[in-house]
Design a protein around this nucleic acid. Structure first.
Lengths: 115, 115
DNA sequence: CCCATAGTTCAGTTGACACTTACGTAAGCT
DNA sequence: AGCTTACGTAAGTGTCAACTGAACTATGGG
């Protein structure tokens, strides 16, 4: 969840996310549409987004088609909604839940996509 | 808006935000409750949050009371909601709107709080 | 097999950022 | 005026993240 929030905090990645929100696109075309940046950079952004489960990848011959994962984005919304939970109980639970995640985050960071 | 998203992407700042979500707290007490980090670091986090309009500051003698600004957080939610706008028109508008903001972001960055 | 296309990964650079210590500043008390 | 409390700011450091260019992998066609 922390990964998703961090991923979306980057403007370039939001741009990518919007491009493939309602359709599939190959990496090259994404790079062309974004412009101003190398294919390599796009590829790395896609890796981050994939690591945050914000996009899904499908292979088609030599190409890789990417598409946004609406579900994870919905969970991100829900996460922000927790800040509105008027019950203090729910606030405490959310804080504790996240604090547990942070411990593992420090160790794993972004290395969970390498396996 | 970009500033708010970036501010919230940092776990420590979310922790602070939760502490002062439903009550005012002086900086020192925030630092004590967060722990594990110097008062200086907290002060800098508070500056970032203030720059993103996510908190408001009120002075009381020698102390400074901080409280979360729910309105800005609501706007953050609304921003994420734009990703769900099914109409492609609205998607395009959102993209263009942000692209305009980005141009000024490059120049201003976080310096708009210095005035 | 050789080459082109599509894309990732590696190595290295640069800038941003979270943090610490030290110092500066403002308000209140005696 | 001095001292204390409460806080921000400055300077410096280590780490992470975004980027570039080069090298590598994989699929498909001649």
């Amino acid at each position: 969840m922390d990964a998703a929030l961090k991923a979306v905090a980057e403007p370039r990645r939001r741009e990518i996310l919007r491009l493939i929100w309602s359709r599939e696109l190959p990496a090259t075309e994404i790079a062309e549409r974004v412009g101003q940046v190398s294919r390599s950079a796009i590829s790395q952004h896609l890796a981050v987004l994939k690591g945050a489960h914000l996009i899904v990848e499908r292979r088609d011959g030599t190409r890789r088609l990417y598409r946004a994962d609406h579900g994870e984005m919905a969970r991100l919304r829900g996460f922000l909604d927790d800040f509105w939970a008027d019950g203090l109980e729910r606030l405490r639970l959310a804080a504790e839940r996240e604090q547990q995640n942070r411990t593992s985050d420090r160790r794993n960071d972004r290395s969970d996509t390498h396996g």
